[in-house]
Design a protein around this nucleic acid. Structure first.
Length: 255
DNA sequence: ATGGTGGGTTACCCA
């Protein structure tokens, strides 16, 4: 069972990449972020032709999340209590015996800004709801673009990024509160090394120089721990022409 | 310290 998270930065532009990647990587479940498509324009019939059913919560121009699976995801949540948010950033659904929460966490722009406050508030509200989900569903996977590098070993230049957006202490503490509901960063379950990233700035040849951050995470609940088989980041689609600035983060689970 | 690239749009946009 292969579960992936991929910020595609416009599904319109990245549909050929998605198609290619689904064909070669053969994931079972894929969480997409930044689809930037309103629901009426979501290419669900094209995706069905590739062998995946999908659910989605999108908007024009910004944000947008989707979940692809071999079978239709059910029991969908796109809005959480206490968060009247027009921005489409969360999609929770059940696939088989798994509960999957796909997050496109707010970027936050700059530490101390209004968007930064929104980021921390959004995460606090979502964390509360994830606690409710965890209480109801023992097999919980929380994945997505967290827009937070958990630790300095997830950052190419920790000095330059010290207390900057995506790396500040309040953001890292907020991520720890998500994990405190009983979730493990599956990548770190297998690999303690640094230098492995999931996002590289388009500017200044960030990817070619591996100047990146690991901000795309797949968290798995404690009940899933015995089933963790492997975790990695697939750099291949980041090398393709006109790529997303993110690479897919993958967790493999034993049946 | 600034700005660079790329998505979207025509915004003092967002990443």
């Amino acid at each position: 069972m292969k579960i992936a998270s991929w910020n595609v930065n416009s599904l319109n532009v990245r549909m050929p990449h998605l198609k290619q990647w689904l064909g070669t990587a053969q994931p079972d479940i894929v969480a997409l972020q930044e689809t930037k498509l309103e629901d009426a324009k979501f290419p669900d019939t094209d995706i069905a032709a590739l062998g995946y059913r999908c659910v989605f919560s999108g908007q024009k121009t910004y944000n947008g999340v989707a979940l692809l699976a071999r079978e239709m995801p059910v029991d969908i949540v796109t809005d959480v209590p206490g968060l009247a948010d027009p921005q489409r950033r969360i999609l929770i659904a059940s696939v088989g015996d798994l509960r999957i929460a796909n997050l496109y966490v707010v970027n936050g722009q700059e530490v101390g800004s209004e968007k930064y406050k929104y980021k921390l508030d959004w995460l606090a509200r979502v964390t509360d709801h994830l606690g409710n989900e965890a209480a109801k569903h023992k097999n919980l996977v929380v994945l997505g673009d967290f827009n937070i590098a958990p630790e300095d070993r997830d950052v190419h230049d920790p000095v330059a990024w010290h207390e900057q957006i995506l790396c500040s202490t309040p953001e890292r503490e907020a991520l720890k509160r998500v994990e405190s509901i009983g979730l493990v960063d599956s990548y770190r379950h297998f690999d303690t090394e640094g230098g492995k990233y999931s996002w590289w700035d388009y500017r200044q040849a960030g990817f070619q120089r591996n100047r990146g951050l690991r901000i795309d995470l797949v968290l798995a609940s404690d009940a899933l721990r015995p089933r963790l088989a492997a975790a990695h980041i697939d750099l291949e689609p980041r090398r393709w022409e006109r790529p997303s600035d993110h690479a897919p983060a993958i967790l493999e689970l034993n049946a």
